[in-house]
């Protein structure tokens, strides 16, 4: 089914990501991991998907990157049905998973070379992209060191480099700054803003509300598999005047009980 019922973006191009009515329930789970989730990302937008542990953020990314099949719903990437035209749709997005999804025994350059090849890059253009991504993430001087020798921040930056290697118009980022030093985190956020300004669309999950407030053009708050609120960060704060920032809004919407 083509996403004709959904309004097209301002430049009359289909949205980079359009997920409609996603439902997913794991076996033996008490409630669905995703319950009628709709998400849209346009060119040059960063959609922050915020939620407590177990709210469904990673499941949502897994479904929207074809790692999981939804029980119901559709996912279109740049107008292509992800589950009917997976090869073409996959070429249009990059993934920065929560894990450092790189081979520890390979160097940063070897990792990028391998993943670049799998994305269909080769020859001089691959070398140029590798150099550019290494430069963007500040790893050009450590390119020939094995990933296992990297610090946490360097690993996160290398993880980002692998996700943007093939210049995808859409990027999925699953908590890309978790557990790293302030300098690396700041650098990653700066580079993401730069990529956004160049037109890349992103779906970004994080626990850090201040990151979302600074970086995201829109946020969606998810809890128990359902989107409980969404909109521009400023707009959401205006609607909830008693909340001074996104953190307070997040706690008001999702509660203060622990989610282990």
């Amino acid at each position: 089914m083509a996403p004709s019922s959904y309004p097209e973006s301002r430049d009359h191009q289909p949205p980079l990501l359009e997920a409609r009515g996603l439902r997913k329930r794991y076996r033996k789970a008490t409630f669905p991991a995703l319950d009628n989730v709709d998400l849209t990302v346009h060119r040059g937008e960063i959609l922050g998907l915020l939620g407590p542990n177990g709210a469904g953020k990673t499941t949502a990314i897994s479904v929207m990157t074809s790692l999981l099949r939804p029980d119901e719903g559709t996912v279109f990437i740049g107008g292509l049905d992800l589950f009917k035209q997976p090869r073409r749709a996959k070429a249009a997005f990059g993934l920065v998973p929560q894990d450092i999804a790189l081979y520890p025994r390979l160097t940063a350059r070897e990792n990028l070379h391998y993943f670049g090849r799998l994305c269909g890059l080769g020859g001089g253009s691959l070398q140029k992209r590798i150099e550019k991504c290494l430069q963007l993430t500040g790893l050009e001087n450590r390119a020939d060191q094995r990933i296992e020798t990297f610090s946490g921040g360097m690993k996160r930056r290398a993880n980002l480099a692998a996700g943007i290697l093939h210049e995808p118009p859409l990027l999925f980022l699953d908590e890309p700054t978790v557990g790293i030093d302030a300098q690396s985190r700041n650098m990653i956020l700066e580079k993401l803003a730069l990529l956004r300004d160049q037109g890349m669309g992103m779906l970004y999950t994080t626990h850090y509300m201040e990151e979302a407030e600074v970086l995201c053009s829109q946020v969606a708050i998810i809890d128990e598999g359902r989107i409980v609120d969404r909109g521009l960060p400023r707009q959401l704060l205006e609607q909830n005047a008693e909340c001074r920032n996104l953190g307070e809004l997040f706690l008001r919407l999702t509660g203060k009980q622990l989610r282990d």
Partner: peptide, 14 residues
């Protein structure tokens, strides 16, 4: 375990 499988499965390759 390291997560590389997720990246591999998200790439446009059989």
């Amino acid at each position: 375990q390291e997560g590389t499988l997720k990246r591999l499965m998200s790439l446009p390759i059989s």
